[in-house]
Design a protein around this nucleic acid. Structure first.
Lengths: 199, 199
DNA sequence: CATGGAGACTCAGTTTTTCTATTCCTCCAA
DNA sequence: TTGGAGGAATAGAAAAACTGAGTCTCCATG
C-alpha cells in the first residue's frame, strides 16, 4: 500500500500552530523561528489545496478543515510517540536527562525520581550553577535547581516550597528548552516534584 | 503536548522498506534511489538507537523492534491518509487524474468510472498516444490506453480483454509512476477495469 | 571454480529544502 | 498617534536529502 501523504514534517508545524493558535508559540515549541512555521504551514496548505488557518489581524483561527484535521493529526502523533517510545531506548540520541544540583537533591526524597524506567529518565546529580549551558547545548534535557536565573529564552517552571523566607526563597526551578516544557517527561517530573516537595 | 519524534520523513522510508523487505523496491515506490532509502533508514535507526532491520546477505529481515514498529507506523499512515483525504480537495496539487484514450473509452461502459467521487477521480478523455509524457510530468496520475509501449521506467498493469487476436491484442494498459502503482486509487481502478472489461 | 547478477553500503558532490534574519504590513490598545 | 504584537515576504545561508559511481558479499549458473 502506497500512501499519498503531505510532507510529514509540515504536519508538525501545523499541529503545533493549531494547538497554540499562534505561529510564534509553535515556533518556540519547535525551536525554530515563526517565519519557518509560517512557511511550513503554507506549504502544507498549498499541497492539500485547502486553507487550514484563517489569518485574522489579531491572531489565528482554524478553518473548518483545520478544525477537523487537528485532532486527527494530534492523535496520529500520540500513537506514533507511543509506538516509538516502546521500541526506542533513546529518542534523539538519549534518554530524557535530568540535571540536578546537590542542594535541590537534598530537598527531595532519597529514591527520587521513582519512575525512571517507565519515563526513561536519566539523572545526573551535582550539577553546577553554570550548567544551564548544558541545557542550551542539549547535553541535558532539563535542570532542577534552587532559585537563580535569569535563564534567557529557556522555559522555567517554579515549584514552590517551604521553608522559604522572603530573603531566601527556596523554590525549585525546573528549566528546559521551550520546546520540551510540556512533553510527557517534563510534565511527569513537574507533577512529581509538586507532590514530593515539602510545603 | 510536545512530541519527541524521529524525523517523520525517515519513517516513510522505513515503512516502505519494511513492507517490501527491500530497499530497492521501497526506493522504486518512493521514486528515489536505493541509496537514499538506505541513508534514511540508517538515520532513523541512529536516532532511535535501535536496529530495525537485520541485513542478511540474501536480503532484509526485520528485527523484533522493526517487527513491532512496522504495523504501528503503517496504521498511522493509514489514519493520516484517511484524515487527509477527508479534508483535502487535492493531494499533491490535484485529484487522482486519469488520462484515457478514445479507443479505450469506447471499450468501457458509458458511465465509467462509477466511483469518481469517493475515490476523488478526475477523468480526462481523448488522451493521445504520446501522452505518457503527461504521466512523467505529473500532469496526470495514470493513463489508460490500448496496448502500445514501451513505457520505460513507468509501471504497467495489463488488463486482458477480448476480442483480441494475436495480431491486434486489444489489451488495456494502465500506466503510472512506479510509486503510484498500488495506491488506493490505482488499485480500485484496476480492479474495476478487470470487472468491467468484456472478456 | 570462475563469473555474473542482485542488492546493500559508502562517499563525494550536487540539488533541494528548510531556516534565519530582516523588513514590511495590519490591527489593536494606550 | 504611537508603540507593540503577530503574521507575511524575501533573500541568502545552512542543513538535509538525493544521486551516481564504485565496492562488497552472496548466490546461482555454467
Amino acid at each position: 500500500m502506497t500512501y499519498r501523504l503531505p510532507s510529514l514534517n509540515t504536519l508538525r508545524a501545523f499541529e503545533a500552530a493549531a494547538r497554540h493558535l499562534s505561529f510564534k508559540m509553535a515556533a518556540s515549541e519547535l525551536g525554530v523561528t515563526a517565519g519557518a512555521v509560517s512557511q511550513q504551514v503554507k506549504k502544507l496548505e498549498r499541497s492539500l489545496g485547502v486553507a487550514l488557518f484563517r489569518r485574522l489581524p489579531n491572531g489565528l483561527l482554524l478553518t473548518v478543515e483545520g478544525e477537523t484535521y487537528l485532532p486527527q493529526v494530534s492523535k496520529v502523533f500520540e500513537d506514533l510517540t507511543e509506538a516509538t517510545e516502546a521500541i526506542a531506548p533513546k529518542i534523539n540520541g538519549k534518554k530524557f536527562t535530568i540535571g540536578i544540583s546537590s542542594k535541590a537533591m537534598a530537598l527531595l526524597p532519597k529514591n527520587w525520581p521513582n519512575h525512571c524506567d517507565s519515563l526513561k529518565l536519566y539523572v545526573r546529580d551535582s550539577i553546577q550553577t553554570t550548567d544551564i549551558e548544558l541545557v542550551r547545548s542539549n547535553e541535558i534535557d532539563c535542570l532542577i535547581r534552587l532559585g537563580g536565573g535569569p535563564y534567557g529564552d529557556l522555559a522555567l517552571v517554579t515549584i514552590p516550597s517551604s521553608p522559604s523566607t522572603k530573603e531566601h526563597p527556596e523554590e525549585l526551578h525546573f528549566i528546559c528548552k521551550p520546546g520540551l516544557a510540556d512533553c510527557r517527561q517534563s510534565k511527569a517530573i513537574i507533577e512529581d516534584l509538586i507532590e514530593v516537595v515539602p510545603i
